[in-house]
Design a protein around this nucleic acid. Structure first.
Lengths: 358, 358
DNA sequence: ATGAAAGCGCTAACAA
DNA sequence: TTGTTAGCGCTTTCAT
């Protein structure tokens, strides 16, 4: 049928002239529907001759199985749904890649949706997946409210929390210790001599943001600084470069006396915007302002000022999540927590090679 | 039902104890199934009193509509499926964002899958979407073979090609002129005095790769250079930073006499790997090797050596694609082609500010 | 306003 | 080996 389409006209193609059903095929081939079904599912059970007739009819009628009907009978589907916070964030797409890699082994298919940190959208997608009978869902929740995830699981669909430790034992999760991450970043900055540090953060409804802040504050307290004044938290309008730009402008506008000398960004996208803006404004990094990011995305090391960042085992996060999805029924749900590590680069280290890169 | 889950035990939750059906709800509420259906779909048609009873039953039984059954009756679904070449490529995720933004307006839901440039996987996802009755599909095809996309459309599902001009008039498409893009990049390099240019490219089965090469070759020919010798094409093992690293190592290993002095990378991910490797190897950019990328991703301008790149209207690509999906039946399919533009930065311009950035 | 029942397309169990 | 048929869960007439 390769080029036959060339002849057809557009309107025709668009018209939803009823898709051929298995009954149509049966009729056209002069066999029973059961036989067509067998050709589709257990070809070996049907005589080559009849099979050919049926296959001809299928091709002829352009038949495509109706997945809904199929599934209505079968009960379930070999696919998995994922909802991440942000489709444009490399952290999540890398994790999605990890999931896909793992799932591929069992020839599951993966569908991804982005919630844009919106609880409603998260719920909508989750419900869509569930209604369509996916085998499991992997969600990085936008807020603390995960009742809907729990509910999905209650109803018999496997569920795993991604990048978020589970608050209840019966739900599996894969996460990275964000408190530790925040602590790492700020301990490092303090060690570099900074005593007032800005935190460009997202809303505290997002757990990652809250935890990283808590870690940062803890590091301050441990160092004998008062987090209340020494940690200047600024909520950015978006976890993006533009958000970072807006945030750092606020910092720079602060009176010199109380202006932080370092900034810890809740992710590398934000940090990218910060670096961009500081450069434009002629502020030297790290001398005028030290910067630490989070996620250690691919490009962090290659920036004009190589960016210090808290690294997470991103893709492994995904593969583990996929693993947990299909553990045997009787095994207890597992809570996996990875540890982050800090990668120090020039954006925060006024040490050895402070001058020119390379 | 918020915290009730806490009490339940895991095994129980996992057991696919048959999901409650509409019949169960009807029974529990002491009404007919039709009434339950009405509560779900046309609540105004049912007496408040009965409605409440039904709603109580729904909550009680944890009922979730079975999407397959629903759709089997209704025929179709308000969602759209997208298949992109690579989920980890910012170009495609940005485009996906564009699609999502546009679709949101009509409260469609979006599902994304990555084919990893594999035709089989592309086919699988497309079929999955089709079988499940999505309203439309948007595909960035891995190869020239788009019969399966045409077929989907023939069967009545709207389809739009993404980042790929349609070869047939009856299929809508949104693309960027990649020949022009390749030409822009190489013309620029030639203007900078380069006479032998490496092209780190992906396989020619991918149209974008082929077109950019053709544009590059054309620019050479126009300048009186022989593309056969002056354009050194190297196929990278992957369109990723690591692929770029492998590619540039080949280039650098060439005997000085025939070694290119500039490299044009088929995307910015590859270029990132190239810059990284050149830095490690101590090759100055652009003096020792000029570099031009493609896509102008967010971080291109912020790299240690700001990267020259061919910019595409990425997110607009997505919104337009979504637009085309739902044009009225009678309107002819549209072929949209955007023009790329070259953004020159330090990685290729030995001109003004050749020395230090900032 | 509600109930009863048909039927969407498919698979699986059974009969021939 | 092939045909017949019940029924998955839902929506939608058509009665009541």
């Amino acid at each position: 049928m390769a080029n036959s389409t060339k002849a057809s006209n557009a309107a025709n193609a668009r018209t939803p002239r009823r898709r051929a059903s298995i009954t149509d095929v049966a009729k056209a081939a002069g066999v029973a529907v059961g036989t067509v079904s067998n050709v589709l599912n257990k070809p070996e059970r049907v005589l080559p001759a009849t099979r050919e007739r049926v296959e001809a009819a299928i091709a002829e009628l352009n038949f495509v199985r109706n997945g809904s009907a199929r599934q209505l009978r079968a009960g379930t589907l070999t696919s998995v749904g994922v909802v991440v916070l942000d489709l444009a964030n490399p952290f999540f797409t890398d994790a999605a890649r990890g999931i896909q890699d793992r799932l591929e082994r069992d020839s599951f298919t993966l569908m991804v949706a982005g919630s844009d940190e919106d609880l409603d959208r998260e719920r909508r997608y989750l419900r869509l997946y569930e209604e369509h009978g996916v085998q499991g869902v992997i969600v990085s929740p936008a807020t603390d409210d995960i009742d809907h995830v729990l509910a999905v699981r209650e109803r018999g669909t496997a569920a795993v929390l991604l990048d978020r430790p589970s608050p209840v034992p019966e739900l599996a999760s894969v996460a990275v210790d964000d408190v530790a991450g925040g602590r790492l970043a700020v301990e490092h900055l303090i060690a570099q001599g900074h005593e007032r540090i800005a935190l460009l953060n997202g809303p505290h409804t997002i757990r990652q943001c809250r935890d990283r802040r808590d870690g940062a504050a803890a590091a301050m307290a441990d160092a004998g600084l008062d987090p209340g004044t020494a940690l200047v938290e600024i909520t950015v309008p978006g976890l993006t470069p533009d958000g970072g730009e807006a945030g750092i402008r606020e910092v720079v506008a602060l009176p010199a006396r109380t202006r932080p000398t370092a900034v810890f960004c809740v992710n590398d996208l934000v940090a990218l915007g910060v670096l961009r803006t500081l450069r434009r404004e002629g502020v030297a990094v790290p001398q005028g302002m030290a910067v630490v990011g989070y996620d250690d995305v691919t490009f962090a090391a290659e920036l004009a000022t190589p960016l210090s960042s808290v690294r997470q085992p991103t893709s492994e996060l995904g593969t583990r999540a996929a693993d947990l999805l299909f553990r045997p029924e009787d095994s207890a749900p597992e809570q996996v927590v990875f540890s982050p590590e800090l990668v120090v680069r020039e954006s925060s280290a006024s040490s050895p090679e402070a001058g020119r890169p390379r």
